[in-house]
Design a protein around this nucleic acid. Structure first.
Lengths: 144, 144
DNA sequence: CACATTTATTTCAAGTTTAAAATTTCAGCA
DNA sequence: TGCTGAAATTTTAAACTTGAAATAAATGTG
C-alpha cells in the first residue's frame, strides 16, 4: 500500500464527498422549487441536448445508468406528457425518446434555475480552478 | 447566464461524470470480487474508521444519506453478523453501531483491494494532480 | 412538576437503481 | 430459406434511497 495509492484514495473520498453534497443540495432545490427529482432532471437534460431524440440505449449510456433504470424514469415522464416514445421505422427493436413541446418548455425554466444554483454552489471556484479541474477530470476519465 | 456560470455548470457535469463512472466501476468490482455492494462498503468503511462505534445519526451524517437509509443498510449488515447495535446507557433514544470482529476482519480484506482498485482507476493522476484536486475540492465543499 | 419542543431512531410509501431474465427483432451465414 | 447469435428494450426481484410520519425519550421553560 504505497503512499501514492493512499493519496489517490483520499482524493477519491473527497471527490465523492463534494459530489454527494452537491447532489443532495440540488435534489433539495429541485424538490422544493420545482417539484421534481434529480433523475428526472437528468433525463430531461439529456433529451434537451439531443432535441431530435435518442434511443433508450443511448440514453442509458449518456447517463451512465442501467437500461432498466432509463425505462422506469422515461415511463414516469411519459405518463406526465413530458416525454414521447416513437417506434423506429428502420429497426423495430428500437425506440426513439424525445421531449414533448411541454417537456422542452418546462425544462428551459428548470435549466436556468439549475444553472444558477450550480453557480452559487461552486462560487468558491474561479476560472482558473475550473480550467484546472476540467483538465484533471478529463485525464481521470481515461481509465474508467 | 454569465460565461462563468456556464463554465461552473460544465465543470460540475464533468465532475459528476467522473464520479459516476468510478462508482460504477467500483460497484462492479465489489460485486464480482467480493459479493458485496457500494452502500454496504461505505457503511463498513465509516464504522472501521470509528472503531468504537457511532450513533445512527452520526453514521448518516458521515455518509450524507438519510436516516432511513442508514437504518436499512445497517439492518442488513446486522442480519449477517457484520455489524452490531448496542443501546446507549446514557441516552435511551440512542443506538451505537459498530463492526463485529467478523465484520472488521472482512472489511480489512475488502479495504486493501478497494484501495488498489482506486489506485488503478486514478492512475493517470500524479501527486501534483492529487494535491491540486484536494485543494479545489476542499474549497468547493465550503458552500454546500 | 407539567407541557411543549427538540432529538434519535424506526417505519412507511414511493421512487430509484441494479443485474439478470425474458421478449422481440435484426444480421449473418450455411 | 432457416438457423444462430447479437442487439434493443422491457420486465422482474431485490436492494437502495428519500422524505415524511410515527415513536420514544430527553431537554427546557413556565
Amino acid at each position: 500500500m504505497s503512499d501514492l495509492s493512499k493519496r489517490r484514495l483520499k482524493a477519491w473520498i473527497r471527490l465523492l464527498g463534494v459530489t454527494r453534497a452537491a447532489e443532495n443540495h440540488l435534489r433539495e432545490y429541485l424538490r422544493v422549487n420545482h417539484a421534481t427529482t434529480l433523475p428526472r432532471f437528468d433525463v430531461m437534460a439529456a433529451l434537451y441536448r439531443r432535441r431530435e431524440g435518442v434511443t433508450m440505449s443511448e440514453l442509458s449510456r449518456m447517463l451512465l445508468v442501467s437500461n432498466g433504470n432509463a425505462t422506469a424514469v422515461v415511463d414516469r415522464l411519459e405518463g406526465e406528457g413530458l416525454v414521447r416514445r416513437t417506434p423506429s421505422e428502420a429497426d423495430r427493436r428500437t425506440v426513439h425518446v424525445a421531449l414533448t413541446p411541454t417537456g422542452a418548455t418546462q425544462f428551459e425554466g428548470l435549466a436556468a434555475d439549475h444553472e444558477a444554483e450550480v453557480d452559487t454552489l461552486f462560487a468558491a471556484l474561479d476560472e482558473n480552478d475550473l480550467d484546472t479541474l476540467a483538465d484533471i477530470m478529463k485525464r481521470a476519465r481515461g481509465q474508467a
